[in-house]
Each structure stands twice: as C-alpha cells, then as structure tokens.
Amino acid sequence: MGGKIAYKEVKNRYNLLPHLRVDMRRTCFLIVLFAVGVTLGYGGDHTIGAAAQVEYDGNIKEIRLEAFQFGFSPDPVVVKKGDVVKLEITSRDVPHGVYIKEYNINVPVKKGESVKVKFLADKEGEFDIRCSVFCGSGHSRMRGRLVVSK
C-alpha cells in the first residue's frame, strides 16, 4: 500500500503537465536543426560585413541615415566604390532595422539611439536598404537605395 503511494508521488513529481506530450526524439531533431542554423551564422552579429578584413583604398564617407515610418533619409545613399562608409543610423519614430543584404548589414535601431556601422563599398551597383524590424502597416514597402558608383 505504502509502496503504491510512494510510486504515485514520484510519478506526479515528474509529470507536472500530464497533458503535454512532447516526443523527445522529435524535439531533439528540432534542436539539432536550430543548432545547424546557428552554426551557419544566423545567430551571429551582422552589423559589419566583410569590410573589416579588407584594406581600404578610398575616402571615408560619413553619412547620417535616419529611418522613419516608412522610409529612409537620405534616399538614395550615394557613395563611390572603394569608399569606407560610416553610417550613423537613427530612428525618428519607432524601432526599425537597417538591412542591406549584399553588405551583410542588419542592425536594429530604437528611437533616441544611434547605431554606427562601418563597411567598405566594394560592390558596385544599386542595392535595397530594407527595414528588418516590423515597424507598422507600411513595413513591407519601406525601402531605400544604396548606390555605389564608379
């Protein structure tokens, strides 16, 4: 009798959520998938891209980039190929994110803060500057341009 009670107590101790069924094997599989994602670089800091490892041979260009609902100022941001670009990013209203895929830049910025990003403009062309933090109903249309000319 006493043995049965003891068994029940132990069972209840480890079964705090009796209705929650979590298959451990599948959960482990899920965790492995996340780990693969992290290993491949998606948990890391994306603020500065390949620029840090490249020798600079152009001018240093400092630009204050302001994000607002739903755009960027100045737009377009124009630099020359080879320039070292120092962006000082601020937000006018709500939190935003400045995301330039081709330069591996993805930084969040809050209102009242300023975030500095430095990169070497080593790829010529026109690139989208997009918002990576949801900022409202026009978020999907919020775009600016980075123009890297010769």
């Binding site: 069924r21 996340f34 998606y42 993805n106």
Partner: peptide, 28 residues
C-alpha cells in the same frame, strides 16, 4: 511535436517565424 490535449499549441507558421526573428533573420 508540440501538442497539448491532442491539439498543437503554437500557430505553426508563427512558431517558425518566431524562431526566425529570435535568430535575427529579417521578417519583411
């Protein structure tokens, strides 16, 4: 996998998007 009383707990697409945002993958 994440089931409570034979019903899934999380909105499936949202669960995936939440993981993405926690890993700093942009949601546009």
């Amino acid at each position: 996998v994440l089931v409570f009383k034979n019903k899934h707990i999380f909105n499936p697409a949202n669960f995936s998007l939440a993981v993405a945002t926690l890993f700093k993958i942009p949601l546009t």
